[in-house]
Design a binder for these strands. Structure first.
Lengths: 119, 119
DNA sequence: AAAACTGTATTATTGATATAATACAATAAT
DNA sequence: ATTATTGTATTATATCAATAATACAGTTTT
């Protein structure tokens, strides 16, 4: 799985975003165990402390729960995942439209541009 | 004019983005003189050194040119502005669609969400 | 029982960013 | 001619982020 960490923003933030994305889109299955902090760090080519910081952020959001000597587990709260996914989508749409509007591009043009995209 | 500087990313980067946006969308008129570094900094409630750093980034992009004892001037290269505006729009569309696609949301849903937006 | 693995905590070092406080030479404004 | 304003440079300080190197107690695994 690709971990594309750039250096334009704090690494731990990018890790939170990538992990959250994988939970919300189902790459990581509800209720299952994550790789260990060290293995995740190794996979993402990042320091274990940095990965740990990202995981503790995810625990604050309720997306994972850590069991001290066993590992980190993805939440099995289906509604939470659904709600956060919808919330993130709304946020992205709002942010995007704000920027595009400020650039002076019309809604019609925007939709034409999106229609050219592959998805 | 609103300078909404948050503390989630480097301040000078946010200043570059805001200034570039104002040049590309015509808020700042081609060929005209900008406020002085100190006045811009005061307006944005930012340290003059930070504003200076942002302006030097803009000069690298060719969007402004500084005349040592006179001030900073917006470029009068209309094509450059048009091209950068198009390029920025494409970038935003690409980034947005990438995230949305990764979230598992369809193009149809995306366009419906955008149609609900106000612009 | 022994070994390996778990999350978690601590300490130290490095680099980037932001602010502050000046300073200077050249020009514009008075 | 004098004063004010211009971009620009310098030095110092503080904070955050990232990495590195350990350490520990409590399970699991063997």
């Amino acid at each position: 799985m690709a971990w594309e960490i750039k250096n334009d923003r704090p690494v731990y933030i990018q890790l939170v975003e990538e992990l959250e994305m994988r939970i919300l889109n189902g790459t990581y299955t509800m209720g299952t165990k994550l790789l260990s902090v060290r293995d995740l760090a190794s996979e993402a080519q990042v320091n274990p402390n940095t990965m740990q910081k990202a995981l503790s952020e995810l625990e604050k959001k309720g997306l994972i729960s850590s069991r001290r000597t066993s590992g980190n587990y993805i939440t099995d709260d289906e509604k939470l995942i659904r709600d956060l996914r919808t919330e993130l989508a709304s946020f992205e749409v709002g942010t995007f439209c704000g920027k595009i509007k400020k650039l002076g591009i019309t809604k019609k043009e925007t939709i034409e541009l999106i229609n050219k995209e592959d998805f």
